[in-house]
Every structure is written in C-alpha cells, then in structure tokens.
Design a protein around this nucleic acid. Structure first.
Length: 276
DNA sequence: CTACCATCCTGGTTGC
DNA sequence: TGCAACCAGGATGGTA
C-alpha cells in the first residue's frame, strides 16, 4: 500500500518517538511474513537502541547500536503504529511488537502479509539484495530530468510500467505514478524509450511535486495506511486522477473525463486529452 | 538481458 | 441476506 510518502511519514513518526530508547521487550507472534522473520528476533532486539532511522525506496531501516539494522517493508497492508503504552490485547494481524523503555510500544500489523521484517549488518546494508539494484531517490536533488531520461532510454515497455519498476526510480507506486504522469501530461501507454529529455524534465518535476505534496499531507489513506501516530493521511482528497474514473478531469473539459485502463494487471487512471 | 505474468494473502466491496 | 467474483497501495520468481 504505502509508497514513498507514506513510508517516509511513518519513518518520521517513529523517529520522533523511539530514537535512542532502550528496547526492553520484543515479541514475534507470526514468523511467516513475505520472508520468514529472523531466528530469535526478539533476543536480538532486547537491550539494543535505535540510533537512526533511514529510508530507501519503500523500506524503513532502524539502525541499532550494535551494528545491525532492522529492515521493514510494509507491503500492501502493513502498519507501524506507536502506542504510549502496550495495548492490553493484540490486534488481529499484529505480527511483531517492540516495547521501549518508558512503555512506548510499536506494533507491526499486516493482514495481507506482503510485508517483511529482517535484519542485516550495517556494513553490508547497501549491498543487500533489497537495495543493491534500486534506482535513484526521486526527492534527492541529484534526481533530474536528465537522470530520469537516461534510465528510461531504450526501454520497450509502457512508461507507466517503467516508473513502477524500482530499478528505474525508487519509491513510486501505482498512485503516485498515475498522479505524476497526469501532472506531466504524459500518456501512460507511451513507450518509455520515447521520453526525451524535455519530457523527462517535466516528469521529474511532477514526481517531486506530487511526492512533496503527499508528504506534507501525511500520505494517502485509502484502506489500511495510517501514520505512526495512528492518524490517517489526507492526500487522497487531492488526487487528480487516481480512483476517479468517470469524474471530470480537473485540468480540462474533455468529454471522457478520467479513464481507467489496466496495465500489467493494475489500474491506470489518466486523461486521454491532457496526457500524450 | 528484457519484458510479461501469475502469485503470495486477507478483507472489503460489488453484483447477482 | 447470502454468496461468489473481483479488486486492492507491492515485489518477485519463472517463463518466453
């Protein structure tokens, strides 16, 4: 579910609450997430502190004070919620719970279990299979139209599919690709290799703008996503096209309004007039 | 190497 | 109301 703005919002929420607090309790309740939880996860966490929280693509990384890094991906339906004290009961799909000194408790729930939690050595982190092949971070100043154009060059695949590929750009998902393509005025079916530098400039600007606005809104809450505080995000109210099939295109008076098509088995929403 | 497809899993919504 | 079909923010392993 969560894309870059949601994951970054959760990261920031955790950062405010759990940094440098000793972990005094940990419980792995269901080990079979997308990949199995590490052996003795609780034992590896208890007594440690999180000294830094970083994000790469849609992964949150909690850097521990012993050189290990806890890697978390929320998949489609994962939540990380901070409680002031440990709730008396477990939620239905609460798979991992971490207790910090001072009673602050983090619950990881994920009803679809597409998410994952694992551990890695800090030294080997960027070489880890999750990170080794990722494309650039779109909010990094180094991410420019020229960089994007180079990564799309030669690809014989629809632009929509190329942008969902984390090796091309990291952190985008179905919502923000639809929104960025709309804002840039580029058709989702256009082949990636046809995107020249002038288009890519617009697209890179649109990606940064959409992600930045979503981040300010605390992300988009459709079904499962909430911030670390438990509050919903509200960028879903600002979607131009996502999940707005049949509604009028906000940017023009085209007859068809927002259309929905299926690409790589996922919904694409766009305006056929504005996006070429 | 590249591109496409099915699949993992659960639950909410839709349509008959 | 009941039930089946379909759909959902992601990632990836296998196949062509």
């Amino acid at each position: 579910m969560p894309e870059l703005p949601e994951v970054e919002t959760v990261r920031r929420g955790l950062e405010r609450r759990v940094l440098d607090r000793p972990i005094v309790a940990a419980e792995a309740r269901r080990p079979d997430l997308r990949i199995p939880l590490p052996e003795n996860l609780a034992g590896q966490l208890i007594g440690r502190r999180i000294t830094r929280l970083s994000r790469r693509a849609k992964y949150i990384r909690a850097h521990l004070d012993d050189g290990q890094v806890l890697i978390i991906h929320l998949g489609m339906s994962g939540r990380l919620v901070v409680h002031d004290r440990a709730p008396n009961q477990f939620e239905t799909h609460e798979h991992v719970r971490i207790g910090f000194d001072g009673e602050v408790t983090v619950s990881y729930t994920d009803h679809r279990r597409f998410g994952l939690i694992t551990l890695s050595d800090e030294k080997a982190l960027e070489a880890h299979r999750f990170f080794a092949h990722l494309g650039p971070e779109p909010l990094d100043p180094a991410f420019t139209g020229a960089v994007l154009a180079a990564r799309l060059a030669g690809k014989v695949t629809p632009l929509k599919a190329a942008l969902l590929d984390q090796r091309v750009v990291a952190g985008l998902g179905n919502i923000y690709v639809c929104e960025a393509l709309y804002q840039a005025g580029l058709g989702p079916k256009r082949l990636a290799r046809t995107v020249k530098v002038e288009h890519a400039d617009r697209l890179a600007v649109a990606i940064k703008d959409v992600l930045g606005r979503a981040l300010e809104a605390g992300g988009s809450s459709l079904r499962d996503y909430v911030q670390a505080s438990g509050d919903a995000g509200y960028f879903q109210h600002a979607f131009a096209v996502y999940d707005r099939e049949g509604e009028g295109c906000p940017g023009c008076d085209c007859a068809g309004g927002v259309r929905r098509i299926v690409q790589s088995n996922r919904s694409t929403f766009y305006c056929a007039k504005r996006q070429r």
